[in-house]
Design a protein around this nucleic acid. Structure first.
Lengths: 225, 225
DNA sequence: GTCTGTTTGAAACATACGTTTGAACTGCAG
DNA sequence: CTGCAGTTCAAACGTATGTTTCAAACAGAC
């Protein structure tokens, strides 16, 4: 065995099991038996289950945030001072995600699901870890979004970003199940890339929707400042 | 005490704790101590923890699906055979949710979060329960969506519905936290109704986005049929 | 070969969980 | 008052969890 083949086997097994079942629902015994290592190996190499969860995220997120940074660099350079458009910004993100070197065929969808879980499952430690470890590319993305949608008020933009986040995290987090359903109902195969290609126009259109509210009871349009 | 005040106290406590922490992360001991009832009461009144989870959903979902059915009835009657528009359909749903009699000020947002969790946490039993118990209003909503977006292919519609679901479930499920952030950052107060009023136009715009894909590497628009 | 630091292994630890038990308590019909 | 279903209670059960322990196995330097 290489120097620490064990560490990678644990990470691989944990990644997949976490994505399938969530964090609390996955025990160390499931992980170590899937990885064919001793139970104590997790605590020896990582220290605790929480630290293992962090390591699983870091293994993907660290190279990803580097890729994303350079994608943003390239985009801003190409735009020569003018702010990138919303579509360009969203695509820079999507592309960076899709183009990441993938450990196996599931690759990206596993990770999308993990990110979705990170937001959904109220694992305080995880949220804290992600925030303080990857705040920079996140803030930069937010700044680009702001510059790409100057017509929106701060409040509108805030909520619409949440809507985008939700559509993305939710869809990707259950993309396997959703793909299966689609396969069974309509007999259609789908790749993560195709889902992303459908998602981006949806998000862009929603983000740029004219700011019109509807009066609930009538369904009539009413412009709002 | 009334005949079975205990049952309601358990349901109230469980509802709130599940929404805060998820299902697996909430123990019966947390629930019963918050509800100030004996530990055994859950198994006595509900039979099992899973059955309690079902009961929490049923308490809200049964009256809600009734409300929703009549909202759809009224809508279809008002349209006299013509299919309701997308906006009308979405508003019928939103209105029914918002107008539900609420047990407390958190009311609707707790439930949105629970529905989000139900989708996200891979609790097989819950999904099965919800599907076979509330399939009717769900299918009806799907049919209305289909009639309101005849221009979409089945596959496009399928994915966009998932996007809508995601944006809604995700936003509403963390609406308390999001509201707090907004309050602190911009000093703005927000109600669930206002969030809904922002969400619906976003969803409608995304749902009706022209089916244009972008070439990832260039970011240029390319019309597709 | 022998020593040294690192990694693995089987077993146990303490704790928390969902569930069950059987006795005590309650309100009410007869 | 007695009897009895319905309900509550403290305690225990069996199981599973994350973590720790300490001896055995290993690898590389001398």
């Amino acid at each position: 065995m290489a120097q620490s083949d064990t560490v990678d086997r644990i990470l691989d097994a944990a990644e997949e099991l976490f994505a399938d079942r969530g964090f609390s629902e996955t025990s160390l015994r499931m992980i170590t038996s899937k990885a064919k290592v001793n139970l104590a190996a997790v605590n020896y190499h990582f220290g605790s289950k929480n630290a293992l969860i962090h390591a699983v995220f870091a293994r993907f997120l660290t190279p990803f945030s580097a890729t994303l940074e350079s994608a943003f660099d390239e985009l801003e350079e190409r735009c020569e001072g003018k702010p990138p458009t919303l579509n360009q910004t969203l695509w820079a993100l999507t592309e960076s995600a899709v183009r990441m070197p993938q450990r196996n065929e599931k690759g990206i969808s596993i990770f999308m699901r993990l990110l979705g879980l990170a937001y959904t499952q109220s694992q305080g430690h995880l949220r804290k870890f992600l925030e303080q470890e990857y705040s920079e590319p996140f803030s930069r993305f937010m700044r680009l979004l702001k510059e790409a949608t100057p017509q929106l008020s701060s409040v509108d933009r805030y909520w619409r970003i949440q809507f985008m986040l939700g559509a993305t995290a939710f869809t990707m987090s259950s993309s396997d199940a959703l793909r299966d359903i689609l396969q069974n109902k309509l007999g259609v195969e789908t790749t993560v890339q195709e889902i992303a290609a459908r998602l981006v126009p949806f998000l862009a259109a929603g983000m740029q929707a004219e700011d019109a509210m509807l009066i609930p009871s009538s369904g009539n349009k009413v412009s709002v400042a």
